[in-house]
Structures are given as structure tokens and as C-alpha cells.
């Protein structure tokens, strides 16, 4: 029940919570997109393009 747990701890009332949830979500997505996924992609053999390596 991680989402209710986070929701309860977000600051403000409904509007403030919505805004901070959106910011939190954006941070998580950007971190995944620019940091985690490139690393994961390097490890996964989804797109090996060379021969012999």
C-alpha cells in the first residue's frame, strides 16, 4: 500500500497533494528515462549489433 502511504505524507490539501504527486512522478520518470534505463539497456541483450563481441 505504498501509494496511500505516500499520498498521506504529501504536503498540503488535495490540490497541493496533486501538484506534489505530479512533481514526484515527473522526477521518478526522468530518473528512470535518463539514468536507470540507459544502464539497464546496456546490460540487457536486447540490441546487440556487433558480430563476435
Amino acid at each position: 500500500m505504498i501509494y496511500p502511504w505516500i499520498w498521506k505524507r504529501l504536503p498540503g490539501r488535495t490540490f497541493g497533494k496533486l501538484v506534489s504527486a505530479a512533481v514526484l512522478l515527473a522526477v521518478v520518470v526522468l530518473l528512470l528515462w535518463y539514468v536507470v534505463f540507459p544502464l539497464v539497456d546496456g546490460v540487457l541483450p536486447t540490441d546487440d549489433v556487433t558480430v563476435g563481441g
Partner: peptide, 28 residues
């Protein structure tokens, strides 16, 4: 409570996989 926890984890993993697929196709 347990069922909700499992549901939440699965939903999260599903979204994560979708996002990764989008990264593999477009992001990269």
C-alpha cells in the same frame, strides 16, 4: 490487504515495463 499489495506491485511493474518499452523504441 495482501491482495491490494500484490495488485499495487503488479500495476507498478506493468507501468515500469511499458515505460521501458517506450524508452527502447523511442527514447534511445
Amino acid at each position: 490487504r495482501a491482495a491490494r499489495a500484490v495488485g499495487e506491485v503488479m500495476l507498478t511493474l506493468g507501468l515500469l515495463l511499458l515505460l521501458f518499452a517506450a524508452y527502447a523504441v523511442y527514447g534511445k
